[in-house]
């Protein structure tokens, strides 16, 4: 986001054809520079696609789950997915279905799967937030500092998942689990954050977040 802003013309700058071309060239060079590390990732994504075939049974093709029982993995930050799989594998996070799936994954598997799901576009939200919960939900995300880690639009970054457009039931279950201390937590942040939420707050948040745009 910030990187893109740099290439916008300054206020009052006249956009000439030559200027536009120069800008385009700079932008292309920047894209190329950004693409360099992903040359390594490209192979990983392909390997990840193979390895993800088994995931599709529950999480849907490309991680675009249509079943509210299983979270949407498409478009999740790679570091989040590799961390979540790691926690399942190490027994820190437990789930009857996921724990055995993750038990025998290698570190390379974790990263290939994470790269693959990160490369899939996140599907648009499958539902709309109840109008009465739009403002209340937004307030809760600010008051509880959700935006500090999950980002201003709650699209996730680094080890923090995209919660915008995730399934309502899944979000409710995670927040309830964090509050109860039954959902594993990387560093205690989410468990602490959920302590201040009432069951009603959790309902409002799940409703609000599940209806947010995913881009």
């Amino acid at each position: 986001m910030r990187a893109r802003l740099q290439f916008q013309p300054q206020a009052g700058e006249r956009k000439t054809a030559a200027g536009a071309i120069a800008l385009a060239a700079v932008f292309a060079a920047a894209l190329f520079a950004l693409a360099m590390p992903s040359a390594v990732l490209a192979a990983d994504i392909k390997a990840g696609e193979q390895k993800a075939q088994v995931c599709a049974a529950c999480h849907g093709p490309g991680g675009k789950s249509a079943n509210p029982m299983y979270p949407i993995l498409a478009g999740q930050p790679a570091q989040f997915t590799s961390t979540a799989l790691f926690e399942f594998r190490e027994g820190k996070r437990k789930n009857a279905q996921m724990s055995p799936m993750a038990a025998n994954l290698s570190n390379a598997d974790l990263n290939d799967l994470a790269a693959y799901f990160a490369a899939q576009p996140a599907p648009p939200p499958l539902r709309q937030t109840t109008p009465a919960n739009v403002a209340a939900g937004r307030d809760l995300t600010v008051k509880n500092a959700c935006i500090a880690c999950h980002g201003a639009k709650l699209l996730g970054q680094q080890q923090m998942p995209r919660i915008a457009g995730q399934f309502q039931d899944y979000l409710r279950a995670q927040l309830t689990g964090f509050k109860a201390g039954t959902r594993a937590d990387m560093d205690g942040t989410m468990s602490s954050a959920a302590q201040g939420l009432s069951p009603q707050d959790i309902d409002v948040l799940a409703d609000y977040l599940s209806g947010l745009p995913t881009q």
């Binding site: 590799s82 961390t83 974790l110 600010v142 500090a148 980002g151 990387m186």
Partner: peptide, 15 residues
């Protein structure tokens, strides 16, 4: 500071 987006950084779990 309630709208701050500063947050701790986490390492890559697999290295």
């Amino acid at each position: 500071q309630s709208t701050s987006t500063l947050h701790p950084l986490a390492g890559l779990v697999t290295g």
